[in-house]
Design a protein around this nucleic acid. Structure first.
Ligand SMILES: [Mn+2]
Ligand SMILES: [Mn+2]
Ligand SMILES: [Zn+2]
Ligand SMILES: [Zn+2]
Lengths: 153, 153
DNA sequence: TTTTAATTGCAAATCATTTGCAATTAATTG
DNA sequence: CAATTAATTGCAAATGATTTGCAATTAAAA
């Protein structure tokens, strides 16, 4: 079980019901495992790994493979955003309807504490990079790493 | 075999001999596999995966596991930099002596073409992010993704 | 309630990466 | 140059995350 975090960041309130509505809209079944997964994601403000989600679920509630499949689908539907902290494990965060979920994190290299970051790579610079190389639809993946206050002691 | 690339970027000239010197300095043996790996890295300007390096080597020349071990060591010695394009495969690039190799790439999501990028995340913003969250020694991982000129046709 | 396509659990398969171990060898030493 | 030794290698097996085949289950539509 992941310990709760009291950081200022919170997911904009969105009823779980609106989440299931989004699923139904895509002709997807609202199953026990899916509702449970959305529930877990909904009560966490930092990205979770599939294994972490699985650990939060009541034992025997849902197979790990089912979670992997659910996250793939939710990602395709744009309901969750996949993040890569460079440790070879995917992490997911719920995305608010209408948003694309693009944002970044600051991760402690010692204890893996995560901080949600509001800043983004400057658009003007990104546009210049795209133009100079003739690329279209350019975006980026960006994560910060450092030593958190606790781990500095 | 990776097709050669004629992009303007080139590795600052550094004799292979200087590379082996760096190895020797660390009390490491200059073996056939290691020399071959450095040679391969030396003639490429974009990061290579272990499998790609292995494919470039004359068949039977060196085991894949040896390449994995060599890259781990070279990374620890700061002679190569590890990059993560988010596809679950590590890539490595030779690092010039005295440099830390920090830089970024623009990758085509269709054909995987790679462009070396000179820009970096603005230091002032990064410092602010570090300060505001009490983090020390903050750095970042950043890669750009888009559709290259060829793949737009 | 029946029908049916979507979903699930479970086990096996993939893939990148790591590791144990015995055989090999670069580098040092005399 | 030959002996000595710790580092290195090849090979096979182990790991860990993620995916997939398939038969059984089930949500949703009729
Ligand atoms: Mn986040
Ligand atoms: Mn590069
Ligand atoms: Zn951004
Ligand atoms: Zn940078």
């Amino acid at each position: 079980m992941k310990k709760p975090c009291n950081c200022p960041h919170t997911h904009p309130k969105q009823e779980l019901s609106s989440l299931t509505t989004r699923l139904r809209r895509e002709a997807r079944k609202i199953t026990g495992p899916r509702a449970a997964i959305l529930e877990i994601l909904h009560q966490h403000r930092h990205p979770l790994t599939n294994k972490e989600i699985h650990a939060e679920l009541p034992k025997g509630e849902c197979d790990l493979a089912t979670i992997y499949r659910a996250m793939q689908m939710l990602e395709k539907l744009g309901m969750v955003k996949r993040f890569d902290f460079g440790d070879g494990v995917a992490r997911f965060e719920l995305v608010v309807e209408g948003d694309d979920g693009h944002h970044h994190h600051l991760i402690c290299t010692q204890c893996a504490q995560v901080v949600e970051i509001g800043e983004c790579f400057p658009a003007e610079i990104e546009h210049r990079i795209a133009r100079q190389n003739g690329f279209r639809a350019v975006t980026h993946r960006l994560e910060f790493f450092g030593v958190c206050p606790d781990c500095q002691k």
